[in-house]
Simulated assay, not measured.
Amino acid sequence: MTSLPPFTGAAGWLNSQPLTPDALRGRVVLVNFWTLTCVNWLRQEPWVRAWSRAYADDGLVVIGVHTPEFGFEHDIDLIRRSLADREIDYPVAVDSDYAIWSAFDNHYWPALYFADRSGSITDFHFGEGRYEKSEKTLQRLLGVSRPLVTVEGVGPEKGADWDTVRTNETYLGRGRGLDEPVESPAYLPFNRWGLDGGWRIGREEIESTSPGSTIAFHFQARDANLVLSNPTGRPMKFQVLLDGVAPGASHGTDITADGQGVLDYGRMYQLIRQPAPVTARTVEISFAVAGARAYVFTFG
């Protein structure tokens, strides 16, 4: 693939009318593949957003391509909500059927593709990081030279503390999960997770089937996040404990210091953000009612 593929097959476009490579000729194009629950995309997004705004007058067009990882991410209202939450104002193609993903032969979230003014793809990058080099690539393609943008991610957009991460991303459904849950979550080995109460284990998710059902994870990282969805349409309260007590100063952006949270719609929920020193801890999440769906733990 050397030229920008067409964006045909999109289920719709947000923030724009449909765009084509021919219509984009003469502009530098940055294509960003993402999905709304991906922690790596969330931590990358403030940079892409800043570039879109900083270089628009120089001829840069950023195009987001939302290709869903989980079934509930096909919901276009959730995608719209994510755009509002992240203050994304550049064009986004809704790639629910993986048509654009396949045209690019892409395999990653997030993924950046850089196209020059003639429509030739000159560079790409998969995952987080490499921000300085990516911005310098944009400046070279645009023919500009000036100080790089300053970006400071906050909340779930804050960069990971890789020096303290000792726990890997962990999928919970049987289709991608590598570890079975521990039957007695009160005695969790390090880097293992367990269930208590009633749970249904599906292909891509686990679902609570009784009030008070609990997930626990023994992890080490500054941040502990959990992708959740709510098929009931009614807000669900949940309680988070850290080593058996309220998290206090270690609470994440989506819960209070006493561990209270509300599952309102499908997205990534930041449960824990430890202040230094970061140590191994056990997080527990208990749902007040049945119906909560959990997909993957991520850490940062």
Rank of each mutant, 00 (worst) to 15 (best):
R200Q: 14
E204V: 10
E204S: 14
R174W: 13
G194R: 01
S184H: 09
T209Q: 11
E207F: 00
V182P: 00
F190A: 15
T164P: 00
T170Y: 01
G197Q: 08
R166G: 05
D161L: 05
P156D: 07
N168K: 11
R192A: 11
F190Y: 10
L188N: 03
G175K: 11
E157D: 13
E183D: 10
D161R: 07
N168L: 10
R200M: 06
G173Q: 06
S208F: 01
I206G: 05
T150M: 02
G173E: 07
E207C: 06
G173H: 09
P189I: 07
G194P: 01
D196K: 10
N191S: 07
L178N: 12
D179A: 13
P185H: 07
K158I: 05
I206W: 08
L195M: 14
L172C: 08
G198V: 09
D196G: 14
A186F: 01
L172P: 06
V154S: 14
Y187V: 04
Y187H: 09
E207W: 00
S208I: 02
T167V: 07
W162V: 15
S208Y: 04
Y187W: 01
W199A: 15
G177I: 03
E169L: 04
R174K: 11
A186L: 02
V182N: 03
S208V: 04
T164A: 13
L195S: 09
E183R: 07
F190H: 13
N191E: 12
P156E: 06
T209S: 12
A186H: 03
L178E: 15
L178R: 15
K158C: 08
R203T: 11
Y187M: 02
E183C: 00
K158Y: 01
G153H: 07
A160I: 04
P185C: 06
W193H: 08
S210T: 15
T209V: 12
G175N: 08
W199E: 14
E152D: 15
R174C: 04
F190S: 15
W193P: 03
I201H: 10
T170H: 01
D196C: 04
P181G: 09
S208L: 03
S184C: 02
D179Y: 01
L188T: 03
G177K: 03
V182D: 05
V165P: 04
R174P: 00
P189Q: 04
T164S: 15
L172Y: 03
V182A: 05
G197K: 05
E152H: 10
P185I: 02
D196T: 04
G197A: 08
R174F: 13
G177V: 05
E157F: 02
N191R: 11
D179K: 11
G153D: 10
W193N: 07
R192D: 11
V165D: 07
A160R: 13
R192W: 02
G153F: 00
G202K: 01
R176D: 13
F190C: 09
R166T: 09
Y171A: 15
G173R: 04
D196W: 00
E204I: 08
P156C: 03
S184K: 06
T167C: 11
E169F: 04
S184E: 13
P185T: 07
D161N: 12
R203F: 06
T164V: 12
E207Q: 14
A160G: 15
L188E: 05
Y171D: 14
